[in-house]
């Protein structure tokens, strides 16, 4: 299997997500990854919002599929995804959204989904349909590599990315496992907790990213709790990407597509003027 640890130069990389991240890093910066749920506030507006944030500086999209029992999500994303479900969200809308978005913008689109919907759809069929829709892969918040045999096989067959999570509490052995299993990037959970904006990004995030780099990760993005351009800049000082979720969802909820586009633009400013000194590749090379 090809983990993020194996893709050293952009030439060898087949993952569009990994390529995007590597290009941003080579340009002296890092990637901005934006999360929005499909079907919120409506399917149409969720597609428009996703396109708008890419047009305003988001490098990679993380499209969330609403789920009845989102244990990793805080109040903002819970409320949005519950509204989407109440509004009639079906899994097929996820594929429709990926297709509509990738028809309009070039940014890679990862789908963030809890595991049971994929299981019920059928892991292989889900992979085939995601690939056909133009999706780049999956971020799986409640699937650990230990339980992922079926998904490893399906992603290997289709070439889709598989983003596993790493937590500050993860042992070194588990971090090594997450790095080896992931393709696209490794999702470093910044803090012990669930999604939602926080005033400060935990010092734990930096330590975790350093540990992941030491475990061989060349593509490490930090998520959970990030909501401001300053936080994006701070994180890109040591990580390869910054993931913003709840803040974007709140902007969309409060002010619609224009507001979320404006926030994306401000966040993207945080990717400018980075002195990415924390990355081991830089220190070594």
């Amino acid at each position: 299997m090809s983990g993020t640890g194996t893709g050293s130069g952009t030439g060898a990389i087949t993952s569009a997500v990994e390529k995007t991240i590597a290009l941003r890093r080579e340009a002296g910066s890092g990637a901005l990854i934006g999360y929005l749920p499909v079907g919120f506030p409506t399917l149409r507006e969720s597609i428009d919002a996703a396109v708008a944030i890419v047009n305003n500086g988001v490098d990679i999209l993380e499209l969330g599929l609403p789920y009845s029992d989102p244990v990793m999500d805080g109040p903002v994303i819970q409320a949005a995804t519950q509204q989407a479900l109440a509004g009639g969200f079906r899994l097929r809308h996820g594929f429709e959204a990926v297709k509509a978005i990738t028809a309009q913008v070039d940014a890679p689109v990862l789908v963030m989904t809890y595991w049971n919907p994929v299981l019920q759809y059928g892991v292989d069929l889900f992979a085939d349909d995601l690939l056909a829709a133009g999706g780049a892969g999956l971020i799986t918040p409640d699937l650990i590599p230990d339980e992922a045999a079926e998904w490893m096989a399906a992603s290997e067959r289709t070439g889709l990315d598989r983003v596993f999570l790493a937590a500050p509490s993860s042992s070194d052995a588990r971090l090594a496992q997450a790095v080896a299993a992931s393709r696209g990037f490794v999702y470093a959970v910044s803090t012990m907790g669930i999604t939602g904006a926080r005033a400060d990004v935990d010092a734990a995030a930096r330590i975790l990213v350093d540990r992941l780099h030491a475990a061989g990760s060349t593509s490490t993005c930090v998520g959970v709790g990030i909501s401001t351009p300053e936080q994006v800049r701070e994180i890109l000082g040591y990580a390869d990407g910054a993931i913003v979720g709840s803040a974007l969802v709140k902007a969309l909820s409060d002010g619609g597509v224009d507001a979320v586009a404006a926030l994306a633009k401000r966040l993207a400013a945080g990717t400018q003027d980075i002195r990415n000194t924390g990355h081991p590749a830089r220190q070594l090379g």
């Binding site: 244990v71 990793m72 409640d142 699937l143 999570l165 937590a167 993860s170 042992s171 997450a178 012990m192």
Partner: peptide, 14 residues
């Protein structure tokens, strides 16, 4: 059975 949980819980479960 199994452990279909966020990675953040794995240390505690272990």
């Amino acid at each position: 059975g199994g452990r279909w949980v966020p990675e953040s819980l794995m240390a505690a479960l272990d």
